[in-house]
């Protein structure tokens, strides 16, 4: 292994990932995002083998502190940590019991005192992960904070697209549905625009964030127009409580206007890739037939890439404390 990890970028030698935490895609350079994707490739290979194990994180303690309910993301982080040999502890805190702030800071201080080597946090409040990151000594990884960011989801989506399409630069990506409440959408907008994609957001006007164009995307309220010629169609989950008339009149109407069916998908490019971060509301934002189409849908591949990307993040963020040369 070389003593310096620097990589050439535009003719300069730069550190591939000079960040202590991963709280969001915001603040990452395009080459840093690409570096994490490159790192993840080796773990895709390992995970497809029979001996899915590496012990580079042996002896390190990974705490998954989930203040908001999650099954899939928690499982993905747990598997990622275990495959790298870390001691993984899951702390599931019901959102109702620990909610208010000083308790949040106190929790952070407690985790820190237990000498965690890496903390993965999910919280219902935008900015909560940054608040904790400012208070602890070890690297912090954001597994989703409010509507703000979900960086590993954006990384796994980018990896999925890159593997399926061979590139990201120049692709048209339509992010469709409840963009307003979606941290997945925000992180994906940041990452995909940084990597050179043309990003559109598509949805009912009540579910598109104000001034979203300022994030470098174009805005569509007409689903067909938004899908026209898209290379990637990324559907978002619509929370049940938002279908009851507050934001859209009903699940039925939502499906009719913004649900992805084969008929709708025909507006996109002939080889358009269908994605969804899960869990899906089948028959609402996406028709089952489209979701289950192995040719078009990358939804299960996204889940697979999730583990690989999280392994890459855990590895990279702990290199400094593991004494890896140059980190």
């Amino acid at each position: 292994m070389p003593s310096s990890p620097t990589r050439p970028v535009d003719g300069r030698e730069v550190h591939p990932f000079p960040h202590r935490h991963l709280t969001g895609i915001a603040g990452l350079q395009p080459h840093e995002i690409a570096f994490l994707l490159d790192e993840a490739e080796q773990w895709v290979q390992l995970n497809r083998g029979t001996a899915k194990h590496d012990d580079r994180l042996a002896g390190l303690t990974l705490i998954n502190a989930f203040f908001e309910n999650s099954t899939r993301t928690l499982l993905s982080f747990e598997i990622a940590g275990k495959r790298l040999g870390a001691d993984v502890v899951n702390m599931a805190v019901a959102a109702s019991s620990v909610k208010k702030g000083e308790t949040l800071i106190d929790t952070a201080v407690t985790l820190n005192a237990m000498r965690a080597d890496m903390i993965v946090i999910r919280h219902e409040a935008s900015g909560a992960v940054q608040l904790i990151a400012d208070k602890v000594d070890c690297p912090v990884l954001n597994a989703g904070d409010g509507r703000h960011e979900h960086p590993t989801q954006a990384l796994l989506d980018a990896l999925t697209i890159r593997r399926r399409k061979g590139r990201i630069d120049g692709l048209i990506v339509a992010i469709c549905g409840d963009v307003l409440h979606s941290r997945v959408a925000r992180s994906n907008i940041l990452s995909l625009t940084a990597l050179g994609a043309e990003v559109r957001v598509v949805g009912p006007p009540t579910l598109l964030p104000p001034a979203i164009e300022r994030m470098g995307v174009s805005r569509f309220t007409d689903f067909d127009a938004g899908l026209d010629g898209a290379d990637v169609v990324m559907m978002l989950r619509l929370q049940r409580e938002r279908m009851a008339g507050g934001f859209v009149p009903s699940p039925r109407e939502y499906h009719a206007l913004y649900g992805l069916t084969y008929e709708r998908l025909a507006k996109a490019a002939p080889d358009a890739l269908v994605m969804h971060p899960g869990p899906m509301n089948r028959g609402v934002e996406i028709a089952s037939a489209v979701a289950d189409d192995l040719e078009r849908s990358a939804i299960t591949e996204q889940v697979e890439m999730g583990v690989a990307v999280r392994m890459a993040c855990l590895d990279v963020l702990t290199r400094a404390r593991r004494g890896v040369a140059g980190w």
Binding site: S126, G127, R147, P209, P210, A211, R214, M215
Partner: peptide, 15 residues
């Protein structure tokens, strides 16, 4: 207030 900052931070905003 509705705007780029609120949208980037993912905070609830009003016109």
């Amino acid at each position: 207030t509705d705007g780029e900052t609120a949208t980037r931070l993912g905070l609830a905003s009003a016109p």
